[in-house]
Write a protein that binds this DNA or RNA. Structure first.
Lengths: 347, 347
DNA sequence: GTTAGCACTCATCTTGTCTGAGTGCTAACG
DNA sequence: CGTTAGCACTCAGACAAGATGAGTGCTAAC
């Protein structure tokens, strides 16, 4: 028996485990010893396979839902599969073309691109597509503008280098003329030119201490207003293709379905998860419990950050059942991330 | 028998129909003749009620899922109920207070207000909350701004009177200096001052024919760019509380659930429905098939437009099962619409 | 017109049986 | 000694047969 080797399995055991996982991925049914020999061209008898399966169960790679059902891979099995067994395919040309085409339509607007991306990820993978939009603070300051709407109501608009816009309605303490507003904008634009947005707030606070400014009421006001504007908005996230999850047989049960949906309605946890892979490099995979979200039981997340030049902007990916076609999805996510990065590069 | 009166039912029949509907609204179970007498203090025997029920079924107000089940109200019954039987309650003070409080938190930003509104409608009604954001074209032009991002990439920002912002990335044919951009903005702002956004495009096209402008390359360019910016974006819609629908017993079935969700993933139809009630005055109710969307079978929509001054801006409402607490939901929608209108009034 | 009574219907629940896929163990085999 | 055939065993799921009971429509009496 494979007990000699603490770590790692014998070649044969790997083959069998792989066969089981791949069978399960396509059938979604517990796979029995017979099925393994039949469908995967192994020259072993079911009895032998059964012995191996018992071992694999012992080691935590398989479980059986009940005595007379076949075995089902555990999270641990998928992890092993992804790490050691899976030959990540390359995305085929037709598919690649299909993805590329989708982008020619969407304008160059970053929001549109990201939204389209999540739809695309969903439709190409047949699972759910997710895109975490860049944090505003991760961009470079470009332009400040105050627009007077009426009386003391002012709309402050903050534009970042990458074309993202953040705006906020503020009520100023007293009425300001259009001229004042222009001067305020000019002043701020000069002051903040080229600064990372994350540092803008600090700069403003520092400037407030500046003596010269203290004597100029208008500038002080400008700083105050701008400070109100800069405010970390909650990260934006695009989720598309939720209904695809319904097609998965393991979520046919109403209770499970509810759970999953509840999880996605409360987006903050999901955002937190994506945040974790923001700093990673390349494709990351979270299998079932690895997401550390318990409503995500039975679901895996495949993500990749996308960047512009050297700056990581956000994360995109696919959420599907743990029983997912990793071999196909991984290259899709990878390719899409690179494509998006390329699209946003020039900015 | 009530056959003498072609239109309208006898007082007694109305009472019975009402009892059935109200019973069904709370139990979600087909209601039988016995239940009607027992639970609704009618001094009639079940046998009599049965006769009446048979008549009501004949008239299309009731159906029975099968011979030995009770009766279930049809869309027609709900329609009658809403039109003739229902005493629309007033929203109670505590609830009103609860709603009001929610708004004190959300800033004054129109987007935030609307998003919060849909959440609120969902949580107060226990069904789904929907809000159709104002069409950009329904607002008044306020300000145009071009921000140069890099090289020929320009971000055009269009601000409306109500603080809504629409922006678009455009690639200009040749590089423009920051100065040029400022002059272009100024020119457009003067030109378009106070115009309804819906007329902006026409104005721009007209101006393009203007001789004076034809000789000024910069102005021509400005018009071209601005024209690219004005583009009816798809209406924005906020939907919240989708999982509430899952709690409804009649949607416990997986097939139904899928259907409903599919309907909401494709938002365009829903938008179309809401558009229809945009021009209506006050609360509107669409019951089941009246929505003219077949995926909406078994669902009702209660809407009310919200306005600013005299201008209808958008629509908000609640989607729930036809078997919904109309008496409670109607005043909620009504009150919320008025409240939102008030909040947006000053703009 | 109303009601009691009654035969009837039919979804749903319960129970029991059967089937078949799949297992673990043991003993024989190469 | 690893591999395999054989066999008894388990158990979910399908199916059929009652039993239950909620509810009906009809008829005849009040």
């Amino acid at each position: 028996m494979g007990y000699g080797m603490r770590e790692g399995l014998s070649e044969r055991n790997k083959k069998i485990l792989e066969a089981i996982i791949e069978d399960y991925i396509v059938t979604a049914e517990p796979v029995g010893s017979r099925a393994v020999t039949r469908r995967h061209g192994l020259t072993l008898s079911p009895a032998t396979v059964r012995n191996v399966m018992a071992d694999l169960e012992e080691m935590g790679f398989l479980t059986s839902p009940h005595t007379s059902a076949g075995r089902v891979p555990t999270d641990k099995a998928y992890r092993f599969y992804v790490d050691s067994l899976l030959a990540v395919g390359t995305i085929d040309k037709a598919e690649r073309e299909r993805i590329r085409k989708r982008y020619s339509l969407a304008g160059r607007d970053i929001g549109a691109v990201l939204h389209e991306t999540s739809k695309l990820l969903s439709s190409v993978s047949h699972y759910m597509g997710i895109v975490l939009a860049p944090r505003f603070s991760s961009t470079i300051f470009r332009h400040f503008e105050f627009v007077k709407l009426s009386g003391r109501r002012i709309l402050a608009i903050l534009v970042a280098q990458n074309g993202t816009v953040q705006n906020k309605l503020i009520e100023s303490a007293e009425e300001l003329s259009a001229d004042d507003l222009v001067r305020m904008s000019n002043y701020l634009n000069e002051l903040l030119e080229g600064l990372p947005v994350s540092e803008v707030r600090a700069k403003i606070l520092a400037e407030m201490q500046n003596e010269k400014v203290l004597y100029d009421a208008l500038l002080t006001r400008a700083l105050k207003l701008s400070e109100q504007t800069i405010e970390e908005g909650g990260a934006q996230i695009f989720i598309e293709g939720q209904t695809n999850i319904f097609e998965q047989p393991e979520f046919t049960d109403v209770r499970r379905m509810k759970e999953v949906f509840r999880a996605f309605e409360e987006k903050s946890q999901l955002i937190h998860l994506l945040d974790r892979s923001l700093s990673a490099e390349g494709v990351q995979i979270f299998i079932g419990a690895e997401t550390r979200l318990n409503q995500m039981e039975g679901l895996s997340v495949i993500t990749s950050p996308y960047l512009s030049g050297k700056n990581t902007l956000g994360v995109l990916g696919v959420i599907g059942p743990t029983r997912m076609g990793y071999g196909k999805v991984i290259p899709i996510v990878d390719y899409t991330a690179k494509l998006v990065s390329r699209l946003l590069e020039e900015e």
